[in-house]
Design a protein around this nucleic acid. Structure first.
Lengths: 195, 195
DNA sequence: ACCTGAACACCGTTCAAGT
DNA sequence: ACCTGAACACCGTTCAAGT
C-alpha cells in the first residue's frame, strides 16, 4: 500500500466538496443550501463534510478563498490597462458573487472565521485601491477617505447589480473624482470650484 | 360588550410584538432570534405571532417600517442644518440598525416582501440625496452617478461602522466632491456653504 | 485516517381545538 | 375573532460504529 495514495485522494475529495459548495452558495445561496445538498452534489455522505471542515462557516471560508484566488489570478493579466477600466472589470468579474458578499456581511457578526476573512479581504481591497487612487492623482490628504469610498462603492455595485451604463458612470466618477481625465462621452468642460 | 374594545387591544398587542422584534432583531440579529424569543418577550404564545403576521419576513417589514418612520421623524427637525452635517447625522442615527441593513440585503434575494421594501427604501434615499447634491452644486450630468455613490457610501458606513473621524472624512469628501468648501483639517469652524 | 447511518437539538410554520 | 398546545418538516451537527 503506497503511503501517499490517501493524501492525494483527500485533496481531490476536499476540492470536490468546495467546488459543489461554490456552485450552490453562489447560485442558490448559503442559507438556502442545506449541507445535504452539498454532500449529494459532491457524492459523499452529509457528515463526511464534517471530516474535512469544522462547520458550514469553515466551508464558506474555503469557498471564498477559492473564488478570490481565481479572481486575483485573472486580474493579474490586466495590470497594464487604465485604472478605471481595471476597476470596471473587477466589478463585473465579481458581480456573480454578490450572494457571497451579502452572506459574508450577515455572518461576520456571528462567525469569527468569517469575520477574520472579511477583515483580511478589506485590507487587500484597500491596498489595491490605494495604488489606483495614487496613480490617478488623488492628493495624499484625501487618500484614506477616497479608499473607503472606493471600497463602499464597489461593494454597493456588487450588492445592487444595475445597468452597464450606470456602472460605467459610477466607476468613472469614482476613479476621477476631480472630474478631469475623463474619457469624453462627448467632450465637455468640467465644472469645478465653488459657486 | 363594546364593539371597539377588541380592535384597540389588537393594535396594542401588535405593537408589543413589533417592539419586541425590533429590539431583538437589532440587538441579537434576525437569524439569531427564534420566534419563540419574540413571543416570550411580547408575552404571547409563539403561534399567536402568526395571527398578526404572515411569517417572519412580514414581521421584519413591520420592524423596518417602524424604525424608518422614527428616523424620518427625527430627521424632520434637522432640515435647516448644512448638507454634510445632515448626512453625518443620518449615518450616526442609522448606525444602530446595521444588522437590519445586512439582513435586508440577505433576504432581498429570497423574500418578495423584503425585496419590495428594499426597492422602496432605495427610491426614498435617492430622492433625499438628489436634493442634497443639487444644493451642493453637483452638476446635472454627474448627478445620477453621485446619487448612486452616495447611497453606496452610506450603506457602506452602516455596514462597516468605523471611527468618528474617518466617518467625518468620508462624508465630507462625499458631500463636496470638488474638493473645495472643505473645512481645513486644523480648523473646526465650518465654512457655511451656499456662499 | 476516513466514512457512514442514525440520532439530537433547534427552528419556522401549521393545525385542530379551544374561547 | 383571537389564542393556544402539540405536531410537522427541515436543518446543522454529533456520535457510535464501521473499514
Amino acid at each position: 500500500m503506497p503511503r501517499n495514495r490517501r493524501p492525494q485522494n483527500r485533496e481531490e475529495k476536499r476540492d470536490e466538496i468546495v467546488a459543489a459548495a461554490t456552485e450552490l452558495f453562489t447560485g442558490t445561496g448559503y442559507d438556502e443550501t442545506p449541507m445535504t445538498a452539498i454532500a449529494a452534489a459532491a457524492g459523499v455522505a452529509t457528515n463526511t463534510i464534517y471530516w474535512y471542515f469544522k462547520d458550514k462557516d469553515a466551508l464558506l471560508v474555503a469557498v471564498l478563498d477559492r473564488v478570490l484566488a481565481e479572481a486575483l489570478a485573472d486580474a493579474g493579466t490586466r495590470t497594464d490597462e487604465p485604472w478605471s477600466d481595471q476597476l470596471l472589470w473587477a466589478v463585473e468579474r465579481l458581480e456573480r458573487y454578490s450572494r457571497l458578499v451579502t452572506v459574508v456581511h450577515a455572518r461576520t457578526a456571528i462567525s469569527p472565521v468569517i469575520d477574520a476573512w472579511h477583515a483580511d479581504f478589506h485590507r487587500l481591497a484597500e491596498d489595491m485601491l490605494a495604488g489606483g487612487f495614487r496613480s490617478a492623482g488623488v492628493p495624499e490628504e484625501s487618500l484614506r477617505a477616497s479608499i473607503q469610498i472606493g471600497v463602499f462603492v464597489i461593494e454597493g455595485l456588487l450588492l445592487h447589480p444595475g445597468s452597464a451604463e450606470s456602472r460605467r458612470e459610477v466607476i468613472d466618477l469614482l476613479a476621477h473624482p476631480g472630474g478631469d481625465r475623463r474619457h469624453p462621452p462627448g467632450d465637455r468642460t468640467r465644472t469645478r470650484s465653488g459657486g
